[in-house]
């Protein structure tokens, strides 16, 4: 639990959307997956996760549906909408430009 870093502002939305491309998922699972995929480097701030989910849903990028989890427990599953997919593309290209730019600057001797 040592190498974890805080998320850059605005990246949480992107990460949530990217995670949901694979399959519909509930809040806790989204956080877990982000941590696993990032090899525990990224830690989702749990206080911001749910407000972010509700905001994305209100904006129409994801939609929610009650289903049962792996442990047969009732859980709220979020999935990507079509608007969410195009939003993900926009956000992803924005992120690429940003990280690419940062990398170039950092690589400059």
């Amino acid at each position: 639990m040592s190498e974890q870093s805080d998320l850059l502002p605005g990246t949480l939305d992107l990460l949530i959307l990217r995670t949901l491309v694979l399959e519909p998922s509930h809040g806790w699972a989204i956080a877990q997956r982000i941590q696993q995929v990032s090899k525990e480097r990224l830690k989702v701030p749990q206080g911001s996760l749910y407000p972010a989910l509700h905001r994305l849903e209100h904006q129409g990028w994801i939609r929610s549906k009650w289903g049962s989890s792996d442990q047969q427990r009732r859980a709220k599953f979020y999935s990507l909408t079509r608007a969410g997919r195009s939003q993900l593309a926009t956000e992803a290209s924005k992120w690429e430009r940003l990280s690419g730019g940062v990398n170039l600057v950092m690589a400059n001797e």
């Binding site: 509930h26 809040g27 806790w28 749990q46 749910y50 509700h54 849903e57 209100h58 129409g60 009650w66 989890s69 427990r73 009732r74 859980a75 709220k76």
Partner: peptide
Amino acid sequence: AQVRSLVLRTRRQDELDEELRLHLE
């Protein structure tokens, strides 16, 4: 979404409680 928020308000409160409870569990 706005209208749904207004109409389904109490239900959404309960759902939110449950969602957070699940997370904690």
